[in-house]
Amino acid sequence: DVAKAIIDLAVYGKAQNRSYERLALLVDTVGPRLSGSKSLEKAIQIMYQNLKEDGLENVHLEPVKIPHWERGEESAVMLEPRVHRMALLGLGGSVGTPPQGITAEVLVVTSFDELQRRAPEAKGKIVVYNQPYAIYFKTVEYRVRGAVEAAKVGALASLIRSVASFSIYSPHTGVQEYQDGVPKIPTACITVEDAEMMSRMASRGSRIVIQLKMGAKNYADADSFNTVAEIIGSKYPEQVVLVSGHLDSWDVGQGAMDDGGGAFISWEALSLIKDLGLRPKRTLRLVLWTAEEQGGIGAFQYYQSHKANISNYSLVMESDGGTFLPYGLQFTGSDKARAIMKEVMGLLQPINVTRVFSDGGGTDIKFWVQAGVPGASLLDDLYKYFSFHHSQGDTMTVMDPKEMSVAAAVWAVVSYVVADLEEMLPRS
């Protein structure tokens, strides 16, 4: 009755709401945890202590060099056709503007194709992208590549409609990538509301002028750590089931949803198993990644350090898509492994979370999955996720303690059972 015991403890027993309460204590104490910041450093120290005090084994920190970017003061003021102070958030890694800012006319486009067609108009202007929101993983291209594409046609800066499924005048930040040989121009996200308004103004033939000021700076890489804890396996201690979430966040809100929830249900999975006095046959390893938001920097370093042991990894698990009510598990692996995962998920019938979907993975486990290790990620109710993602709204208020408890139960049952099976998951 192991699965039932885990579910009872996590959802109905004394551990109910625990992952939520633990997360609230951390994020209320240190706030958001940007790569390279003092608050991320403090969060790692606190988590190291927490995991030790929880009685987990082999608690240690693995060093990683991570990007250090700070946004500084920033503002965007529309000067024509009327004065309007706009909300904005600079994008990770962006260069700043000169101290006096950049004052320029605006060119509004709705796609990269339109930018190409109107390339001669872009020179010396601020390009505003008002791309429609389709699905996140497509629309996010505008945030990532917007500055490069605008710079290629001679723009001075780019302002991108936030990649958000819903907006109450909320700018959403995120990472962007410059390209070698293309001038680095300042880039930021503005609100859906302002992007749409400027699009309407431009379509009426109005001249739009914006003064953009960004104090963003890039510093030398900072020292950081992936945080690791284990329950060492009883029979095959060298073999591993890895459960994970990332501890860093953007510098807005509290980073509670992205990815505090994922990190804390991963810790909770080990806590639940330990509290029940269980010890699986192979090692359950918790990894709290650093600098995921900058492109999986900590995860890449971990892969480089540990890939020699790849044959001993049975399953890698990552939760980085919210910890709302789970729908099931996304899984990548062989047909045989998928059939086994379906049986494992059948154990979650009491909480009705039994489905196995395709495309398990995520930024922090993709290196392992691409190399052939079975990978699983939590699939949950994403209805609210991209409304709050990378914005000031990512706080504990959006989290739900009961939903987190259910997610933790799923995470614990799957990781424990796979770690305790007599054989590793078969690969293709």
């Binding site: 890939k307 044959s311 059939a339 494992v344 154990l347 590793m424 690969r427």
Partner: peptide, 24 residues
């Protein structure tokens, strides 16, 4: 370089299924 583990399962799917059911 990534090292792959050979697929060395000694058990049938039915046996694994029974093993998993045991955790229920």
């Amino acid at each position: 370089k990534a090292i792959y583990r050979n697929d060395t399962s000694q058990r049938t799917f039915e046996e694994i299924k029974e093993e998993i059911a045991h955790y229920g």
